[in-house]
Amino acid sequence: MEKKVNQKAWFFVLPVVLLVAFSALIPLMTVVNYSVQDTFGNNAFFWAGTDWFTDILRSERFHSALWRQFLFSGIILAIEVPLGIAIALAMPRRGLWVPVCLVLMALPLLIPWNVVGTIWQVFARVDIGLLGHTLANLGIDFNYTQDPLDAWITVVVMDVWHWTSLVVLLCYAGLQSIPDAYYQAARIDGASKWAIFRYIQLPKLHRVLLIAVLLRFMDSFMIYTEPFVVTGGGPGSATTFLSIDLVKMAIGQFDLGRAAAFSIIYFLIILLVSWAFYTVMTGKTKESDR
């Protein structure tokens, strides 16, 4: 059947387009404007072409921040997604405990990001922090302000604490949508717990996992507030992720042209990787639809 093309839809989309233009497109254009020019104040601009872009792409500083960023996103995805699925599977399917579990899970998500950072900054301090001090008393040499590995561990654990709940809630919703008959049929078929997970639960989780992976990737790739509050990007530049580096460049050094080019490259990387995730994961669905 051929669908009738209805031009009226444009009128409904128009308000959103205008809103997005003001909130996103126009500011983005300013950034584009900065990225191809150089300025020394006084509103005097000089054409710079692609100089800033080549500069950024060649800079060692950008490469190491980018590498750190991918490592960070990789680690937290590798922890949060399996952990989230495991917790969602362990949560009760029905009964009195369901709302309790849900509220407990939702709590970390409700805390403002800089507060999360402050909580962990204090929590992990060796002198007064519960965690840091306990570790010190146990004889473990832990200091996130001096040791790069400790700083990484702190930031990763903080992110896992903060965001695993999101994966849990998404997966839990996915699991709840599986009818009882599937579990009953699996029992009659003599399926093991693993087979139930592999052939019933995981296929049904496919879509929510796609969303979870995308959200967690994008968010972790743009992470700023929490590591900024906890480590400030240090020690040295051990936890200087892309956004922290970008802010240093733009606000700290007031290097607007370079920072603008950085922003655009940053944006394109996120767009590209998200698109790749999406294509790979939905491509698999299409194949199974055949």
Binding site: P179, A181, Y182, Y199, I200, P203, K204, S288
Partner: peptide, 8 residues
Amino acid sequence: QFPVIYDS
């Protein structure tokens, strides 16, 4: 009542 098949 509702067909149970393993989708994947």
